[in-house]
Computed example of a mutant assay.
Amino acid sequence: MSSLTPAVTPDWAYEREHWRRGYFRVAGVDEAGRGAWAGPVTVAAVILPGLTTEYPFRDSKQLSAAQRETFAAEVRRVALAWAVEHAWPDEIDRLNILGATHAAALRALARLDPPPQALVTDYLKLRTTLPLSAPPKADALSYSVAAASLLAKTERDAVMCGLDLQHPGYGFAAHKGYGAPAHRAALQELGVSPVHRRSFAPIRRLTERGEGGLWPVNPPEG
């Protein structure tokens, strides 16, 4: 492993609490892109074979891009079930970012086959009838959530690279839609694209005021 490998090693502590109650198909859930200004928020759900197995999976934020791709492929290979869902800017603008994240998470969980019996999430307190553990920083502590973080991050990165080709000039492949200086500069020059989240304050303020030559949300006719 490279020097980017985090010191904290995930384990099965949160899953084990569910196993003790007879819930052996525990899905880990995590998201990527909640704070971005553009593109989807992406949620993954993963059920791993557990019990005594150890995995190399780690919180995706603490790994290099190459490590993430390698481990994500391993997640897809070993998982009992996995699914990834996106909530796009129109859904985010309609529901707000938390509501859209919850909706995407529930869609991902509904696609798991076999279905989960319990959940561990990274502080995502879903409305569900399933037993739920939602500790903070679970992506660094739980193998299942770490696996979900790998899928969510790599799938979203791939989407943002695709959006970079569809909407050139914004630098989506580099900053993945977050508020980097290059992204701010591109907004000043190009205006707001169809994949920007207009409900997010930095985008909303600029579009409503028309500052910096940005296109307004509803350009005047004529």
Score class of each variant (00 low, 15 high):
Tyr14Glu: 09
Ala45Phe: 09
Val145Thr: 04
Ala147Cys: 09
Phe24Ile: 02
Arg198Val: 06
Arg34Trp: 10
Glu208Gly: 07
Ser144Ile: 13
Ala138Pro: 04
Gly33Arg: 05
Ala105Gln: 11
Ile97Lys: 12
Gly35Ala: 05
Gly177Met: 12
Ser193Val: 14
Gly22Pro: 05
Phe57His: 07
Leu163Ser: 10
Ile92Gln: 09
Leu124Ile: 15
Lys125Trp: 04
Gly191Asn: 03
Thr154Arg: 00
Leu130Gln: 06
Pro89Ile: 15
Val75Thr: 02
Met1His: 04
Asn218Arg: 15
Val29His: 12
Trp82Ser: 12
Ala147Trp: 06
Arg184Trp: 13
Pro136Ser: 05
Pro115Ile: 08
Gly33Trp: 02
Lys125Ile: 03
Ala100Trp: 01
Trp19Gln: 12
Ser133Leu: 14
Thr53Arg: 13
Ala186Cys: 09
Leu63Cys: 02
Arg25Val: 08
Ser60Asn: 14
Tyr23Met: 08
Val75Trp: 00
Arg197Ala: 06
Thr129Cys: 08
Pro135Leu: 14
His102Gln: 15
Ala180Lys: 11
Pro49Ser: 03
Glu54Met: 08
Trp12Leu: 11
Gln188Gly: 14
Gly222Ala: 06
Val120Tyr: 10
Gly177Arg: 09
Trp82Asp: 05
Thr101Arg: 02
Tyr123Thr: 05
Arg77Asp: 03
His18Thr: 02
Leu63Ile: 00
Val84Met: 08
Gly177Glu: 11
Ala27Thr: 01
Pro114Asn: 14
Leu165Cys: 05
Pro135Arg: 10
Asp90Asn: 08
Ala104Lys: 14
Ser133Met: 12
Gly222Glu: 11
Gly22Ile: 06
Ala65Lys: 15
Tyr55Gln: 00
Gly171Cys: 07
Asn218Val: 15
Asn218Cys: 15
Gln188Asp: 04
Ala152Arg: 08
Arg205Gln: 12
Gln62Met: 07
Val41Asn: 06
Leu63Glu: 00
Ala173Tyr: 04
Thr53Ala: 13
Val192Asp: 09
Gly22Arg: 00
Val84Asn: 03
Glu211His: 14
Pro116Tyr: 00
Asp59His: 00
Leu214Glu: 03
Ala148Lys: 06
Arg77His: 13
Thr9Asn: 10
Pro135Tyr: 11
Leu151Val: 07
Ser60Thr: 13
Ser144Lys: 13
Ala104Glu: 13
Trp88Asp: 03
Arg68Gly: 01
Phe71Asp: 02
Arg127Phe: 00
Lys176Asn: 09
Glu15Asp: 05
Thr5Val: 09
Glu31Phe: 01
Asp11Cys: 03
Ala110Ser: 15
Pro136Cys: 01
Gly213Ile: 11
Ala66Tyr: 03
Thr70Asp: 07
Leu190Ile: 09
Leu190Ala: 06
Ala66Lys: 14
Arg198Pro: 00
His175Gly: 04
Leu130Ser: 05
Leu4Pro: 01
Gly39Gln: 12
Arg34His: 04
Val217Glu: 06
Ala180Pro: 03
Leu4Phe: 01
Gln117Asn: 02
Arg16Lys: 14
Gln166Met: 11
Val192Lys: 00
Ala65His: 13
Leu112Thr: 10
Pro181Tyr: 04
Ala158Lys: 04
Leu190Pro: 01
Glu155Ser: 10
Leu106Gly: 11
Gly50Glu: 08
Leu124Met: 15
Ala152Lys: 09
Ala81Tyr: 01
Leu132Thr: 14
Ser199Met: 07
Glu208His: 09
Glu69Met: 11
Pro194Thr: 11
Ala146Met: 09
Tyr23Ser: 14
Leu126Arg: 01
Met1Lys: 02
